[in-house]
Amino acid sequence: MAKSIVQEFTKGLWDEIPPFRLVLGLCPTLAVTKTVENGIGMGLATTFVLVCSNILVSALRNMIPSKVRIACFIVVIATFVTVVELLMQAYTYPLFLKLGIFIPLIVVNCIVLGRAEAFAFKNPIAPSLADGLGIGVGFTIALAALGAIRELFGAGTILGINVFGPSFQPFNFMVEAPGAFVCLGLMLAVMNLAKK
């Protein structure tokens, strides 16, 4: 039993890491990863919602009629998103402003709904928690990595610390919209290469 919980956790870190293996949740991935800090903030907010909604959906799985399950999942998720929104507004206001509408949009992040439907609705609480945590941490790592690449080339910094020295010419393409798509596409290609 203990072993399988570890497996549920670790599968989110490589085998099913979103948004690479599970191509879901692309919008926040592309939009907020201009910097590492934004990527990590978004990742952690999503992880919180993912873990809480997985636990609650799993706890209520025998009570929710399967016909209206999607509506129930959405209400559960929307509740936790509101919690995150209010918490971030209170404690990390600058980050809250930077992430903008992408915090309320966690509600329609297919990763969260996807895990509730595919995993939490069919499994007990402990594996659901591990699953949510694993996928969430995987998502955070992916966002941080993408943010690191874009910030490094687009602004010459990592977490705001200058890396290349003052004579560096920023490669603006990377922090703009087109760079986000190309960068994610190439990262996916590298991961496909590594899998073989």
């Binding site: 191509v23 087109p178 760079g179 986000a180 798509f181 190309v182 960068c183 994610l184 596409g185 190439l186 996916l188 290609a189 590298v190 496909n192 290469l193 073989k196």
Partner: peptide
């Protein structure tokens, strides 16, 4: 091969 499907899709979307 590594670029097939979603990967090339994203790069194209970038263009």
């Amino acid at each position: 091969k590594p670029l097939q499907d979603t990967s090339i899709g994203l790069v194209t979307a970038g263009m």
